[in-house]
Design a binder for these strands. Sequence first.
RNA 1: AGGACCAUAGCUCAGUUGGUUAGAGCGCUACCUUGACAUGGUAGAGGUCCCCGGUUCAAAUCCGGGUGGUCCUACCA
Length: 922
Amino acid sequence: MEKTYQPSAIETHWYETWESNGYFAPSGEGEPYCIMIPPPNVTGSLHMGHGFQESIMDALIRYHRMKGRNTLWQVGTDHAGIATQMVVERLLDADGKSRHDLGREKFIEKVWEWKEESGGNITRQLRRLGASPDWSRERFTMDEGLSKAVQEAFVRLHDDGLIYRGKRLVNWDPKLHTAISDLEVISEEKKGHLWHFRYPLADGSGHLTVATTRPETMLGDTAVAVHPDDERYQHLIGKNIKLPLTDREIPVIADDYVEMEFGTGCVKITPAHDFNDYEMGQRHQLPMINIFNDDAEINTNAPEKYQGMDRFVARKQVVADLEELGLLEKIDDHNLKVPYGDRSGVVIEPYLTNQWYVKTQPLADEAIKSVEQGDINFVPKQYENMYFSWMRDIQDWCISRQLWWGHRIPAWYDDAGNVYVGRSEQDVREKYSLAAELTLKQDDDVLDTWFSSGLWTFGTLGWPEQNDFLKTFHPSSVLVTGFDIIFFWVARMIMLTLYFKKEVPFHTVYVHGLVRDSHGQKMSKSKGNVLDPIDLIDGIDLETLVEKRTSGMQVPQLKTKIEKMTRKDFPEGIAAYGTDALRYTYYSLASTGRDINFDVGRIEGFRNFCNKLWNASNYVLMNTENEDCGQDGSQNFQLSLADRWIISRLQEAEKAVSEGMNTYRLDLASQALYDFIWKDYCDWYLELTKPVLWDDNASADIKKGTRRTLIRVLETILRLAHPMMPYITEEIWQRVKPLAAAEGDSIMLAPYPVADESKIDTQACADIEWVKGFIIGVRNIRGEMNIAPSKQLSVMLKNGEENDKRCSSEYSHFLKKLAQLDEVRWLNEGEKEPLSATALVGDLEILVPMAGLIDKDAEIARLKKESEKLEKETSRLQGKLGNAKFVDNAPAEVVEKEKTKLADAQNALGKIAEQIQKISEI
RNA sequence: AGGACCAUAGCUCAGUUGGUUAGAGCGCUACCUUGACAUGGUAGAGGUCCCCGGUUCAAAUCCGGGUGGUCCUACCA
């Protein structure tokens, strides 16, 4: 093995080996286990959130694969309608062209070209993470198979009466010229104004005052509403308003939607441009006057003066004109929520258009039931409430988008505007018995990307065709996803899957948190705090990082700020930590669904952990290669105390890690493994093998037992760790396996360790605790007394019980080596005890003679510190045990435990007091 | 406005059905290049478990109220 751990030297090599050998594909044997990847955006690149999510999935997949399950990790990408179309349009724009210059067909060709070029980016990055999906089954939502599923789903839903077309208010993006769903609208609090306008009554008897945040929409007002109980306006109900700036008259109506206390209590009603007004318009059969075009400019329904004006220009103009007419009463400051398109960033306009909808209520009812009944479980559980509350208040889903990139809606129109839905134009003609000469034109719109993603779990497996894969792997086992996508995707997947497959898409939804920066800030390009997982793996120097974070920044101040922050946070750039360390960091932070603040300090710690494992393995190999470690199956070996103890601890570690994996507590699993490897195996066990292996007098059998245990425990550790740190474990395992009599071509196909309760050796554990207590006692004296670690000491023992006598004699070789002692002996009967520093192990007193070694005051100070601690402890326990209520009410074993603690503490305290006395007397 | 989640060491986080001397990593202090490892070892320091009540023999843990933070949902034009 290389002397030092260098992740870059091993990672790509092993990945290529695994992939080219087809190890990622399902084995075809065992109980199926399946995870469907939440398809990343094909235009995208890997961010920390992906890294986190994919690492979790890979750990679960590798774990279950090693446990012998027939494991499928279905991989693929999403065509991301709007995002992808925008990227390609931007490219065209650089050449001064628009998609309309190219025309639909040519444009789509361009998109495909671009996808071929850049679409591999994210899958390449996935590979760098060590992800082990079945690449041979990679799918793309625009592929033929998925497209067929989408078409089939649309036609069936339509024929079943669950898809309809209607003219309604939608969220319109005036920049992208498409409808978007509620979920794609981000509302942000903005400072705005509340304009108060006087609307004159038509009969000349005066006016009323309305308040609005959107003056320009008054051009489309078709009523003014007041509350039916509002005494101020009773007399106005039923009268007409002469709508200023127009030649229209509109009625004053009564509706209890109006809040009397807000504004003036009079609301202008614009049914074509506001969701609430739309509903009120429906209730009162008000006309709807659309005053905008697709660009949100004033159209010809408005007075000529305003036609062609942008909405914000029109706003100013309307206000100015009303002011000139003396109708502007006042302008108040007002905070309001403004809807923005999450892709385009422009203000979204409620806009009347023809769109396709899915009737969601019947689907939602089933979807709710499946979670209520426990057919689907959320982890953590509280996300079920979020899911229910959304599902119970669900709106029909607008699924048409006015884009070119996506699944084109399988609907055709004749010249009279009749709609026919079918699998193709031919199919439509047959299905509806249409004359051959009737001209049909396909709908121009495409489907919402989430419509296709909703079919992901079964569409990727070949549906609507029935095949073995679909039968074997659907429903999938677990969906790993972020909570931000529960509505977008999870909910819709559940609805559509239940409808088409009559079964759930997955049994468990494991919801993880968001990855934030170390200060808890959301990572975003504009904040300049994004970390690229690949940079954490490969490292990046400061200048490149600054350049990367600030490139394309338009605002110079922002650029300066980001640069400053980056230089402060990463003065040395970022070191190359390797994939295994990055993955381990993710796991360590993956607790109960809460957000994680990613701190580079953590990853450094885990890089060190990898290094530790590497060096420990190096030690083990040095001592086992070309040696008899029982790899031939021979039984002539003997286990030392340390061997029996580490084997015992290994069982507990195996149990803890598996429990963590099974309950989606990867943080607990990784912690248990970390502690076992570093604290038990490296800190203690490896040290305890040295007195055996380096002892010329030790028997061949016991040396063999130690070597055998060294190598076999290491081999097990590697398998235990493999799902979390795939590369380093494979690299080492290949060297270790022959010595441990393990078989197989790759660790990823080796069996996962299972705890064997019968190997838990409580006696060995108790004895090791004794040995550790002894050693730590001596080390403590050394540390606090400033005795050089290299200085060999002679210690004497007194006051011990039988067990202390046994342990001190059986394990003296361990004590001598690890505590650097050249002699350990019991005080003889009647022998005068030399002045000593003392350590206690239960009743046993360890005496370290002070002559020439120890500063008297230092020893007194040390003992006093110890005795203060014990005094606090005793008084606490005495208080507790002196309380009759505690003694009477607490379970006997709890009381007993406290009593023992008190006795031990008092005993120790007495001995220390005695010692302080002795030393002080000199 | 309603709801969810969170608040534990300087920082990032664990802490199970109430009973631990409240833990880890990083950082900090002292000592140490001893034959796997200085990406290391040994020994330490460091906590009003956000605040106030309550339940209980016993609360970081359960309940109520507050404060602060994050997020979601719905919004009054």
